[in-house]
């Protein structure tokens, strides 16, 4: 099977950039994203949600703007009737229950970490990222530099899902914004 070529391939190199001292922002690119969308109908949402939760060994579906995860994968509730499934293939969904769609190549995922990750994102996203408003395992879709993106607060850091076509353009903005905090790219 041919290798997947990421949208950012050739457009960045690992290293330490910008302000000296401890790097405030760490960026890394998640390779070979495995992402499926599963959508339900209004009446079938509870059942489909439960099915997805079960598929990763969790008890209940994620509520609006929330994520659940385990070692098997993660389920993100990104729209009222739509879920994203990460790192595993979706269970079979009958048309009466809903539908699934492979979106693994449609997004580039950048992981953002570091002591100033939240402050950094505050330069880019009109989102309330304060702890009470956006705790761990919250998901939000918003506009970053005019591009619709999805942000997942995961384990102290953030996963930023960018439409693949805009990945380089957004990466350039991330890079330029991160320099003032001290940037480390791994």
């Amino acid at each position: 099977m041919a290798n997947r070529l990421s949208a950012l391939a050739g457009h960045y190199s690992p290293g330490r950039f910008g302000a000296e001292g401890q790097a405030g922002v760490h960026l890394s690119v998640v390779a070979d994203l495995r992402l499926h969308q599963v959508a339900a109908w209004p009446d079938s949402l509870p059942a489909v949600g439960q099915l997805l939760a079960n598929s990763i060994g969790q008890a209940a579906k994620p509520g609006p703007g929330c994520a659940i995860s385990s070692e098997q994968g993660a389920v993100l509730r990104i729209e009222p009737l739509k879920f994203w499934l990460l790192n595993l293939d979706p269970p079979t969904i009958e048309a009466e229950q809903g539908c699934s769609l492979d979106l693994s190549h449609s997004r580039t995922c950048v992981h953002i970490d570091g002591p100033q990750a939240q402050e950094f994102l505050g330069r880019l996203l009109p989102l309330d990222l304060r702890a009470a408003a956006f705790p761990d395992n919250r998901v939000a879709s918003s506009a970053l530099h005019h591009v619709g993106v999805t942000l997942w607060h995961r384990g102290g850091g953030y996963d930023l899902f960018i439409p693949r076509g805009f990945a380089v353009s957004i990466w350039e903005v991330l890079h330029a914004t991160a320099l003032q905090f001290g940037l480390e790219i791994s």
Binding site: Q37, H105, G165
Partner: peptide
Amino acid sequence: HVTSVSEQ
């Protein structure tokens, strides 16, 4: 359901 797959 309609979903953009322009990027996929």
